[in-house]
Amino acid sequence: MAPRSAPSARRQRIGVELRRLRERAGMTAAEASRALGTTQGQISNIEANRFGVNPERVRTLARIYGCTDTQLVDALADMAAERTRGWWEEYREILPQRLLDLAELEHHADALRVAQALHIPGLLQTAQHARALFADAVPPRLPHEIEHLMSYRIKRQAVLHRGTPLPYTALIHEAALHMRVGGPAVAAEQLNHLVEMGRRAHISVLVIPFGRGAFPGSGQGIDYAHGPVTHLDTVQLDTEHGSEFLDAAAQLERYTTVLDRLEKLALPAEESRELIAQAAATQK
């Protein structure tokens, strides 16, 4: 089995979940290797994603670990069987790996729920809004870097427009509606775009108004990607130093609770659109 180079976060998840299954079964890597008829090193390499694993090996290990969750095993086997290179691969060596991981996560998600306190979610940004954000980055970006990021951002948004569009819920604090990114004209265009996108059947744009007061979370951007089974959900956090991916059960439960509470604080969809439209009118 040949070593693997730079597996994506999605591919790494297979090894992480196999390790969790082994630990849940109370087996050491040495015990698992004896049951599989291989070396302890191979088990460790699979779990650390130094080597790839095929669907048959995933199912065999799941049987050894006594896993009876057939949906989880099927989902992991399907992940192991993936061989098609996604569009994001054309940006390898151009953009950071974490951005490629985010695009892959969104592409394979069954649904997305995001929360933003001061920004418009990336999948709902207009081209001019995104360009203004990229141009204002620290450290400053070169023109060709901005163009790469722009094309990447537009291609990410395809998940909302494909034949079977991605169910998408965006929770946005009212503060983000008044940031005037790119100036009044760009801000008005962006807000009107939010209203139009919120009218689509598979998209919910919900605004948390100023009057709701304190809200849970630190105000950081949260992207919650629902997998084929809850166990394979993933949380992506926006931080100043880049993206962070979380998938431990306690972390998933925490951010599910945070998003549930934010959704309860938000206005209903129609009232949210009215508030966004009012904010757009003030930009002129």
Rank of each mutant, 00 (worst) to 15 (best):
A6F: 08
P7M: 08
A9H: 06
R20Q: 14
E23F: 07
M27C: 03
M27Y: 01
A30G: 04
E31G: 00
S33H: 07
R34N: 05
T39S: 15
Q40G: 15
F51S: 10
P55A: 02
P55H: 02
R59N: 04
R59M: 04
R59C: 04
T60A: 00
G66M: 01
C67E: 10
A77Q: 03
M79L: 15
A80C: 05
E82Y: 02
W87I: 12
W88G: 01
W88N: 04
E89Y: 13
E93L: 10
H108S: 09
L112P: 00
L133T: 08
P140G: 07
P140L: 05
H144D: 15
H144N: 11
E145K: 04
K155M: 12
T169L: 08
E174L: 10
L177G: 10
L177M: 12
V186D: 08
A188E: 14
L191R: 09
A201E: 14
F210N: 10
F215Y: 15
G217P: 06
G219I: 06
D223H: 11
H226W: 03
P228L: 06
L232W: 05
T234A: 03
L237K: 06
H241V: 09
S243V: 11
S243C: 13
D260P: 04
D260W: 03
R261Y: 02
A269R: 13
A269Y: 10
E271Q: 15
